[in-house]
Design a protein around this nucleic acid. Sequence first.
DNA 1: TTGTATGCGTTATCAG
DNA 2: CTGATAACGCATACAA
Lengths: 330, 330
Amino acid sequence: MPKERGGPTMADVAKEAGVALGTVSRVVNGEPVGEPFKEKVLAAIARLGYRYNSSGRVLRTDETNTVAVIMPNTENPFFGELVHHICMALGKRNRRMLLCLTENDRERETEMIQMVQENGVDGIISLTYNPDLAVPENIPLVTIDRFFSVSVPCIAADNFGGGVLAAQKLRELGCTRVAFLRAASELPTEPKKRKDGFVSACVEMGLPFEVKAIVEEKDSFDEFDQFLQEHMEGGRLTFDGLFIGTDSLAWLIIKKLRSMGVRIPEEVQVIGFDGIRMFGNQEYAVSTIVQPVAEIAEASVNTVLSRHFSTVPSLITLPVHYAKGGTTRD
Amino acid sequence: MPKERGGPTMADVAKEAGVALGTVSRVVNGEPVGEPFKEKVLAAIARLGYRYNSSGRVLRTDETNTVAVIMPNTENPFFGELVHHICMALGKRNRRMLLCLTENDRERETEMIQMVQENGVDGIISLTYNPDLAVPENIPLVTIDRFFSVSVPCIAADNFGGGVLAAQKLRELGCTRVAFLRAASELPTEPKKRKDGFVSACVEMGLPFEVKAIVEEKDSFDEFDQFLQEHMEGGRLTFDGLFIGTDSLAWLIIKKLRSMGVRIPEEVQVIGFDGIRMFGNQEYAVSTIVQPVAEIAEASVNTVLSRHFSTVPSLITLPVHYAKGGTTRD
DNA sequence: TTGTATGCGTTATCAG
DNA sequence: CTGATAACGCATACAA
């Protein structure tokens, strides 16, 4: 049965109850109403099977209680987890989530920004690396992991601190020669600070290190293979510790190393970044720097719904922690 | 800057262009309008920076172009993938997705059904095992993996066929004594047919088998440990093939078996169900019966948006296929 | 406290 | 083909 129009409205309820329309509205919204009136209204509502219809309120007040979330996808477990926590955080504050997936298509992103403006959402939470994102006026926008300008609040994990932590951990676990591997976009995103933190800590501790960073859009992952091959000596890797930009890439690298006969974690210990768990709820896929996903979600929601949106901090950084998977010897 | 009310409306554009309101509406909606009028309107729109506001249309036509998707979570990679494909399928048909996550909380589910009705969505796609789901009148509802009644279309993978396929594969791979392990709810859901298909095929082929099925809500996973222990003889499992209800559980069982010294796939081959890939885009986590997630998503969307919703088939079953992960010897 | 009346932005009907 | 106008369901300012 295709949605039939025209159930009872507040006006019908008012007539049925013998009260004014405004009184019905006040009862429905929980505003103070005299007890006898309230009862009459509730009885009429029950008799008629009245159901509140929010479209009237939206038109009148321009508040949809809906927040748009713009995300590349929900197949990547990190994004899946993030979407999950954002949805829950919104639910706690009685807001709904309009989910928009971009698959990293910039044109689609632009359309979506346009679309959600037409739809009149109360705010936008966006995780996108689009360099020329058209920031909408009039609608609060919060980004995750990508800083645009001081007027657009950005929420991110402490990527720099995570890099430092990874270096410290590897050293603590006995590594004497380490490397950082990463594939990233060309843009200056927050996750790039993982390298900065790692390098900084290695220098500080006097831990010898190398860096292999490729550009996601143009370089092939074969470059990693080559890098690894170049650093093999007598069947062993010349590093005993690796820090890798994401858990996903770490998994790929580990597969490659194992196929080359390198034993992990016996010969080489590996730490990834993100904190991805198997099937979302089992053990960590690799030893990792865990992003505080729930906190990032909470902060994003709190920020985008903030009453004083214009005075909100422009960059919020949240603490990470280390967790062991099976790829370190702790 | 909190959303300011009152950008220009169609009425403003009409005044600016010196035409009638209706003409503006027709131009905006791409309906036939005389060329000179059209130009005047478009010019006025550009001058004023007019932007379409859908809330007026929603109130007037009761069409939101939005479909609610009710899902347990997006942390489980299967649900993450499903949500992803549903969102894309909706996008192709120019619809948006209101995502509602239940975390299997029945009370929350009820609230959400209520809420989306107030919000006036055009349809609902729901994956829930809630036995007493209040089916909303007036709004097309499609379920995934759970059959309610002939009036509520259900979309599901060919679970029975998948069970058959798993049995055939194990036999083809040389297994001579197999078992099926599963944890499921008590309700009669579509995925339960995995067992039926498996059993049926084993009987048909004369392949000796056992079944261990526990109830998710009350039994502990320890029961699986016990089952496995009971079927060890001289350090080897008495089965050489296992079919397990989900990839997630298969992963757990495999870990357990390996910790018991059982080699996989050398001694025991394992096939799961769902088709979960590492990090959403890498290799299959285990050898598996792959659900046609994209097709399930497409079918759900097509069905819920169907013009003739009442004449739509009440159960749509979509074909699965086998894919090798690392847990079989093929 | 309760009633009345207006308007939110759009679509659609009906005349011109 | 275009113009004028009445809804759509609700919130709210204002009057009683």
